[in-house]
């Protein structure tokens, strides 16, 4: 279970002054659910997910994973989550097997059950042919598979995917989305950020449309469609963002508040 309440994050930016990356977002994601964060580039999705995965610290507000606070109980939170993003890469000088084993052992899994789990994962994700391949020699698709295996090797109850399909070809992206859906079916609570409408439409049980650090709309897709009288998600997304930009024009300089 993910609970986010009034989460804020701001940076000091030399050019633009105080830059508000998150302006107080709140949402909840339940087990067996894919919660989508849909927003354009620079909306604050990555910042939010980095805070939730304990890599960054919030400036204000709170976020908890299964009751553990991401700031004050970061160690517990890290044991509850699997984190994967377009930015997370694989080690060039490690094989697929070594990499997944490394993270499994960092999670404290004893050797025998770890290897059993890895065998299952390598089978399920069709990774046996790249078992001994070094990261430097892997294709993008192979790297994504390794990243997924690395993120779920410890069977975490919460999974966080940040723009996980960015830069992937259609086949690899589809395989990844199928894996995410399977994980949801296994009862995982999944936070999935993307800027691709079709992915969000197809995959997410609940959605938050995020723009300039604020959530503009939130709820199940059907509810959003009914509330805004728009069937097409892309059109709905565009309307919400345009309306927000008209109401809150971006300052020319200084504070880039939402």
């Amino acid at each position: 279970m993910i609970r986010v309440h009034a989460l804020t994050k701001h940076y000091a930016d030399l050019r633009r002054g105080k830059l508000v990356a998150l302006g107080g977002i709140s949402f909840q994601a339940a087990p067996g659910q894919i919660y989508g964060l849909l927003g354009p580039n620079g909306a604050g999705k990555t910042t939010a997910l980095r805070i939730i995965s304990t890599v960054l610290r919030a400036s204000g507000g709170s976020a908890t994973i299964n009751g553990y606070d991401v700031t004050t109980q970061a160690d517990q939170v890290r044991r509850q989550i699997g984190f994967m993003s377009a930015n997370t890469a694989v080690y060039d000088r490690m094989t697929a097997w070594e990499m997944v084993e490394y993270f499994g052992r960092l999670h404290g899994i004893p050797e025998a059950p770890l290897h059993q789990r890895m065998e299952e994962l390598f089978q399920r994700l069709q990774m046996n042919d790249i078992r001994d391949l070094l990261g430097a020699k892997m294709s993008t698709g192979m790297r994504q598979k390794v990243s997924i295996a690395r993120a779920i090797v410890h069977d975490p109850p919460v999974l966080i995917f940040d723009e996980a399909t960015a830069g992937l070809d259609v086949l690899v992206a589809r395989a990844l989305l199928n894996t995410v859906a399977e994980l949801r079916d296994h009862g995982k609570c999944i936070l999935f950020s993307t800027h691709i409408m079709r992915e969000a439409e197809k995959l997410c049980d609940r959605l938050a449309i995020i723009h300039r650090g604020r959530i503009l709309a939130e709820g199940p897709l059907e509810q959003l469609r009914a509330e805004h009288g728009e069937r097409d998600l892309e059109e709905l997304f565009f309307q919400l963002i345009s309306r927000h930009d008209e109401q809150h024009p971006e300052p020319a300089g200084g504070e880039a508040s939402p």
């Binding site: 304990t54 890599v55 890469a89 990243s147």
Partner: peptide
Amino acid sequence: RGTLETLLSSPA
């Protein structure tokens, strides 16, 4: 190489 973020989100 982008591997640091992965390590930072691990239990280490």
